[in-house]
Design a binder for these strands. Sequence first.
DNA 1: AGCACGCCGACT
DNA 2: GTCGGCGTGCTC
Length: 710
Amino acid sequence: MAFWPNVVVATPAHSGVGSSLTYRSELSLTPGTLVRVPLGAREVLGVVWDCPPQPPEGLTDAQTRAVADVLVGLPPLNARWRQLVKFAAQYYQRGLGEVALAALPPQLRDLSTVQLARRLKKQEKARGTAGDTTPSPPASAPALSDEQQTALQTLDTAKAPVLLFGATGSGKTEVYLQATQQALEAHTDAQVLVMVPEINLTPQLEARFRERFEPLFGADALVCLHSGMTPAQRLAGWLAAHTGQARIVLGTRMAVLASLPGLRLIVVDEEHDPSYKSQEGARYSARDLAVYRAKVENEALSAQGGNARCQVVLGSATPSLETWHAADQGRYLRLSMPARIGGGALPRLRLVDMNHQPKGAVLAPPLVAAMAERIARGEQCMVLLNRRGYAPVLACHDCGWKSACPHCSAYRVFHKLDRTLRCHHCGFTERVPRACPDCGNLDIAPIGKGTEQLEEQLAGLLANVQRPDGSPARVARMDADSTRLKGSLEQQLATMHSGEVDVLVGTQMIAKGHDFRRITLVAGINADSGLFASDYRAPERLFALLMQAGGRAGRDAAFVNSQGSASEMWVQTWTPQHPLFDALRRHDFPAFAAQQLAERENAGMPPFGHQALLRADARSQQAAQAYLNAAAQAADGLPHRDEITLYPAVPLTIQRVANVERAQLLVEASSRGALQRFLSAWQPVLLECRALPQARGLIRFAVDVDPLSI
DNA sequence: AGCACGCCGACT
DNA sequence: GTCGGCGTGCTC
């Protein structure tokens, strides 16, 4: 008796190989079994997709090679996981094996069967001792507000994805915690997946979950899964999730593809965050896959009978318009928690019209004065500027030279601290020239402001300001540069918490998640620069960013009240008349969303229309565009072509990065189904078009379904 | 995608 | 003389 298992390996859709490869095996292999198979000269990890007892047609015996090794001891990946992977591969136009293998920990690929057995044994042993840990008193959950209570109850019985629309500080995390507890207590094998948009946000959430659940389920019951972990940690975490030993998995977008056989609750925190959309490889939206995954789990659970469900919660103070629209239509269940815990008020908006401020001032004088007042009272301030470095450009006043990157169509940023010019796109770094490289003029000067300069200027402006104890005000900066070294993020957060720092200057990263109880003033500098960009999502992003940043202020109602002052959100803008600010002033996200959705509907934009991008990287811009336009031409006559609009190829905003020219072509459809079917039919055509003479110089192409920016 | 094989520049 | 750059082609 022999079998012909179809095995998926890490070959992408555009490699020309079908979705799976057929091997030979003496044994019948359960679908989902992990195997090692010969592929060319090497041996690779693969997943058995099915295992028919008949040889395939059109494939000779000589072509079929034998399965080299079966990873016994590792339970097969279940049908729900395989369905999720299959859906993701189809929907995002990638190879089945590419998605499947990307969802497995990289170390699993090069681990021998013996090593794996050892790993599993170790894990098993740890599980054995987990139950013996001294039972600590169960962590007491705080009493819930009425809003939280309602949310929790609804969550328990909801028959649709739940949008938890909660103001910053309304206690969403406590709802996640208690929902997790509910799910875990309902079933001994139940697992919960909690996702956050960024690695930075995992430590504090992990701490909250550990504090609550370690006494109940032991330390091994919670694992983290994100790309910042070492390969060994990732393998261990993945194995724990796959074997069910981990009851709670906390991670970034990659965690949505982890094997979780007992999944009963998925939490997507800050669901609007663009980081959930992967930007390379398979460009999937972890949020959308989370919703799909819950659906698959629920279909399986209801087929088994009983009323167990896998719930999915999308949490945000400023939901994505896609999610908001789904809630409007009743596809998602909207739960609102408008009140802050402790009765704190949301910060008052102070709009500064920069047209009426002294020319050249980065910070409006009234804002500086307001900050000085706060510092003198022992309060902290936060200033947001979304630009690293000292200045975005260095220029020669004489000949007009600018600090262009030789490899990219972008300027290199002036970093004063280490006297370098750095390209933020390709990483090319040089020491700042003493004189203009073109004309030798010594008068080269920075143009525009970055966080380094803002920190420097603020330190100067606040030099004479004293804190209540008479010590001088202290300014600190937090951005990707200041937190690059391991542990420095934690260190910087600690100095902020301890109150050593009065003013924190930083990029977007300071707006997310971190709770500093003494912050009562938040300022957005140059925040509206995004509004001038052509990106139709710019207002949505700006609103979310300002709302999130504003949410950092006045989190501790008791502190704010004791200070006798209200918290404030200052925004410096050149377009104060923009309707976005009216809604922001009222903290009225629903009004903002309604206005934006009306605009989107009129323009046929998402979520009313559906989009995909065909992107091309090439030696020359001409080749990139020629390939794209040829692909568009070759689409004639494909199924659903008449329901699709193909736009002409255009260069990306940053046309060249690291000497690679980039272009893209927008694909639009009014129906998701038509777009999907068209893209599937287009895929083989895209492969063929690579061989066209005009596409000479093409390096790669990729389809981006539901792109976040166009 | 990997990863082999294969052909041209700066180093032990 | 090699090490190594990445261009081209293949994987049941």
